[in-house]
Design a protein around this nucleic acid. Sequence first.
DNA 1: AGTTAAACCTGGTTGC
DNA 2: TGCAACCAGGTTTAAC
Length: 284
Amino acid sequence: MPELPEVEVTRLSLRPGLEGARVRGVRLGKALRWPLVWPDAQGAGRLQEALVGPLGRRGKYLWLPLEAAPGRPTAGGLLLHLGMSGALRFWSTGQAPEAGPHDHFDLLTDRGVLRLHDPRRFGAVLWSGSLDEEPASALLARLGPEPWDPGLDDARFHAVLKARRSPIKSVLLSGEAVVGAGNIYACEALFESGIHPAARACTLSRPRAAKLLAAVRRILQRAIELGGSTLRDFSNAHGMDGEFQTQAQVYGRAGLPCPRCGAAIRRVVQGQRATYFCGACQKR
DNA sequence: AGTTAAACCTGGTTGC
DNA sequence: TGCAACCAGGTTTAAC
C-alpha cells in the first residue's frame, strides 16, 4: 500500500502526538520482515528515558529518532517501513484498544502508544544507532534522490533513465531515478505525462523525461494533500482514510473509459506488477 | 553487469 | 455453500 505519500501523511499526522514523548517500553507481536534487533541491555536502559525527536522520512522509510535527553546527542532511533499493508496509529494514553492479531509493534510512551498494524507483515521496524550506521545505512544506500531534492534536476533524472533498457514503469518502481512512486503513482504519473509504460527508459527524450519528473512530483504532492490512497488497510495516525484513490485516472480502472479520450483503460503485467494505462493517450 | 523471477505473508474477491 | 485460484500498496534475495 504505502508509497511515499502515505508515509509522509503518516509522519505529519504522528508528529503532534509523538514528538517529545518519553519512551516507557515496547510491546512486540509477531516477527516482521526482519527481526527487531533492540539495543543491548545498556542501550535499552538509556531508552527508558529517551525522547522522541523530530520524525523524518527517506523514500518510504520513516525515521523515528530517540534522543537520550534534550540537547544531547541522539542515542539512536527506529527505522520503520509499512511494507504492503502496514499502518501506524497513535493512541493517547488510555485510548488504545487491546492489541489485535495483526498489531505487531507498540512503542509505549508517557503520552500514549504508537502502534504498527500490518496484516501481511512485509513491514519492518529496525533499531539503528543512526541513519549513517547499519542497518539503516545499508537500506537507505540503495535509494535514489527524493522527489524534491534540490540536486535532482531534469538532466540528472534523464541521465539515469538513459542507462536503463527496462520499461519506464519498472524503472520508476525501482526508485533509482527518483524515490517514492509505487505502483499506483507510477501508473498515474505515466498517464499524466502521456508516456507509455512499456517504453524503454533509455529511449525517452530529455523533454519527455522532464515532463515525467514533473508529473511524478505533482502526483505525489497531490496525494499527500489528499491524505494518501486507502485501498484497504492504510489510514493516518488518527485512523482517517486517504482520498486519492477516488481521483485516480487509470489505476484500478481496467475497462473503464479513459478520462481524456474515452478509450478503454488497459491492464497489463510488468515485472509481476499490474500496470494500468491508456493505449491511445500514452505514447512510446 | 543488468534484468527478471521467486520469496516473504495474510485476507479479500472471483470463479467453478 | 465450499473451496481452489488469483489478487493486492514493497523490497530483498536468488537466479537467468
